[in-house]
Amino acid sequence: MPDEVILNELLSSKKEEKIPKSIRETLYLAMQGYTFEAIASKRELSLFTISQHLSFLILHGFVDVLDFVDSHTYTLISNVIQELPKGVTIKRIKSNCPEEIKRNIIRMVIADLKRKKQNKG
């Protein structure tokens, strides 16, 4: 199956991190272009669980946050985070965002910001 070959090449080309099987299944669907909600539906898992999987994958550079969060929302959340004290909770970030922005999306943006910070340092 060619997609599995591509997935294995991607995994072996990254740091030798072990990805749990469930997160690997989420990665496989993400690589096929499924949306955040579609992955949750297809895997029959909660949006919370899939957001945790995607956050892990974003943090480690396996997927791009912009595949799951539109750039406007990403910028908005990023700006809110920059305006708040370091280490605030997702609940506090959420309370400073428009109501339609969900915690699951905030979680993914935080993972990307952490990844960028790690890559700088």
Rank of each mutant, 00 (worst) to 15 (best):
A40G: 12
H60R: 08
S78K: 06
K117A: 07
I19V: 03
L10Q: 13
Q118C: 03
L76C: 14
S41Y: 09
K114N: 01
I39R: 03
T75S: 12
L27K: 02
I23V: 15
I77F: 11
A111C: 03
A30Y: 01
P85Q: 13
F62C: 03
K94H: 13
F62R: 08
K117R: 08
L29D: 04
Y34R: 12
H72T: 10
L84E: 09
I23Y: 03
L57V: 09
I90C: 04
Q118F: 03
Q32A: 06
N79A: 02
R115N: 10
N79S: 14
N79K: 02
S95H: 14
S95Q: 15
I19R: 08
G121T: 07
D67T: 12
Q32K: 15
L7M: 07
A111S: 06
I58V: 14
K117C: 00
G61R: 09
N79C: 01
E100D: 05
E100N: 15
L7N: 07
Y28R: 15
G33V: 11
I58S: 06
Y28T: 09
E4H: 05
L84T: 09
C97M: 12
K94Q: 15
P98I: 06
V88C: 13
E100F: 15
R24E: 04
I110K: 11
I50G: 06
G33W: 00
N8Y: 06
T35W: 09
L11T: 09
Q52H: 02
L76R: 05
K91W: 09
N79Y: 00
A40M: 05
D67V: 12
V69R: 05
E100L: 09
D70Q: 15
E4M: 12
I19W: 03
L27C: 03
I23W: 07
N104Q: 05
V88T: 15
E9Y: 12
T89W: 13
K42L: 14
T49W: 07
E100K: 04
F48C: 00
R43W: 01
L11N: 03
I77Q: 15
K91A: 15
E83D: 09
S95N: 11
S12C: 11
N96V: 01
L45E: 08
K21Y: 12
T73A: 11
K42W: 10
S22F: 14
G121C: 01
L45M: 12
V80F: 10
K117W: 04
E99Q: 04
I106R: 10
P2W: 10
E83K: 11
E83L: 06
G33N: 05
V65F: 11
G61F: 05
V80E: 09
D64W: 11
I19C: 00
S22G: 08
V109F: 01
Q52E: 13
S95I: 10
A40L: 02
R115Y: 00
K86V: 11
F48S: 14
I110H: 05
Q32L: 14
L57A: 07
E99Y: 08
T89P: 03
L29V: 02
K94D: 07
